[in-house]
């Protein structure tokens, strides 16, 4: 069974993500440190915590993750995990992985923040990870910031909440979702299944 490494920044619920990834046929390993000998087929950056704190925890692993990204290993970032793909965040100091150029900014103050609940995906780009996902499908969000990519080519879906923001990004083997596929019922499960299929290849 292909192995996916789940990076643990040290707080919150990783159990749901672990479960969901196991349900789609991946073997999971949760750890606070990653090394070359881990022998892994994919990486997940989960979505709980604060940008600065997580960026600090990620710092020692940064070079390795970026190198693995270049080798084509599938990487999925969820919520904060996706925000860490970018360079900076208005949430606090510190540097993300910089896999994508851009920064994370706060949601509009004209709406209730956090953006919490089920909202729809407007599909901008039909790619494999969205196989069998209909436009305007509902997925579950819990966040206060969102990424603004410099390279608009990586935008896969957008969602409207106070503003139209980027809710999913992808470039080759790197996938990021602002929503939580592991909490998004059937739709989320389909997305993770598609991801698992990409990993298995």
């Amino acid at each position: 069974m292909p192995r996916i490494f789940i990076f643990d920044y040290g707080v919150g619920n990783l159990f749901s993500l672990k479960n969901a990834l196991e349900n789609v046929g991946l073997e999971t390993k949760i750890s606070k440190s990653i090394n070359q000998s881990n022998n892994l087929d994919a990486i997940a950056l989960p979505g709980v915590g604060n940008f600065s704190a997580a960026a600090k925890k990620l710092e020692p692993a940064k070079e390795l993750i970026n190198n693995l990204a270049l080798t084509g290993i599938p990487i999925i970032g969820i919520c904060l995990g996706m925000q860490l793909f970018f360079q900076r965040s208005d949430e606090g100091s510190g540097y993300g992985l910089g896999l994508f150029k851009g920064k994370n900014v706060r949601l509009s103050s004209s709406v209730k923040v956090p953006h919490m609940g089920w909202n729809t995906l407007k599909i901008i780009k039909e790619i494999e990870i969205l196989d069998n996902i209909n436009d305007q499908s509902f997925v579950y969000f819990v966040h206060s910031l969102y990424p603004v990519p410099i390279d608009k080519e990586i935008i896969v879906t957008q969602t409207e909440y106070g503003t139209e923001f980027t809710s999913m990004v992808a470039s080759k083997n790197i996938f990021g979702t602002q929503f939580h596929p592991e909490k998004s019922g059937e739709t989320g499960l389909k997305i993770l299944k598609n991801f698992a299929r990409i990993v298995k290849r």
């Binding site: 159990f15 479960n19 969901a20 349900n23 909490k183 998004s184």
Partner: peptide, 11 residues
């Protein structure tokens, strides 16, 4: 809690 978390994928 563990059993529920395993069984459902909604919050």
């Amino acid at each position: 809690v563990e059993r529920v978390a395993k069984a459902v994928n909604i919050p």
